[in-house]
Simulated scan of single mutants.
Amino acid sequence: MRRKKLATAVIVFIATYALFSLAGVLFPVDREWYESLNKPDWTPSGRLIGTVWSVLFAFISLSAALVYTIYDLRKAATPFWIMLIINYLFNQAFSYFQFTQKNLLAAAIDSFFVAITALALAFIARRIHKTAAILLVPYMLWSFFATYLAFTIYGMNH
């Protein structure tokens, strides 16, 4: 039974990573447009941003897999799964607003909701699995930084 649980946790990890990565396929970055925006000097390079998100998606996915190994989809973990879905939707919406709609204000507001739901997700995870919660801290911190950056870019281009 333990082997089956581990295999399913690996599937949860892969599925979560794939879903979080989906925005890059559905709403690709318009590099020419993005590069034309006024941005603060402290804006990370596109390559660094992509690398950070790749690592963060792995942390989020590992957090989900750890929660799954303890609770499956049982009632005790329901708040975690619900908040993860809400956070996921906000996360995906950012790329839609930023790169498809080119709406910097909507993207900045959405980024704030990503950060708030990442914070909530970390607090919920803390009650379930301490390591899962710790894995979400970099995501939460980066999301707040991304929110500040998004509002700064909006202000510089408004």
Rank of each mutant, 00 (worst) to 15 (best):
M1P: 11
R2V: 07
R2H: 13
R3E: 15
A7I: 14
T8K: 15
I11H: 03
F13V: 04
T16Y: 05
T16E: 05
T16I: 07
A18M: 12
A18Q: 07
S21V: 04
L22A: 15
A23E: 11
G24S: 12
V25Y: 15
L26Q: 14
F27E: 11
R31W: 02
E32K: 14
W33V: 13
N38G: 03
P40G: 06
P40Y: 05
D41R: 06
D41Y: 04
T43H: 06
P44W: 04
P44S: 02
P44F: 04
S45N: 03
I49C: 00
G50C: 08
G50F: 09
W53G: 06
W53K: 08
W53V: 10
S54L: 12
V55E: 06
F59T: 05
F59Y: 05
L62G: 00
A65T: 05
L66N: 06
V67W: 05
I70P: 00
R74P: 02
R74Y: 07
K75Q: 10
A76D: 10
W81A: 09
N87Q: 14
Y88F: 15
F90Y: 14
A93K: 14
Y96V: 03
Y96M: 14
F97V: 11
F99K: 13
N103T: 03
L104V: 09
L104Q: 12
L105V: 08
A106C: 08
A108Q: 02
S111P: 02
V114N: 09
I116E: 07
L119Y: 13
A122C: 10
R126Q: 07
R126N: 09
I128V: 04
I128N: 00
H129I: 01
A132W: 00
L135M: 05
L136W: 09
V137N: 01
P138F: 10
Y139D: 03
Y139Q: 01
M140A: 13
W142D: 02
W142V: 07
F144W: 08
A146C: 01
T152C: 04
I153A: 07
I153D: 06
G155Y: 11
G155T: 09
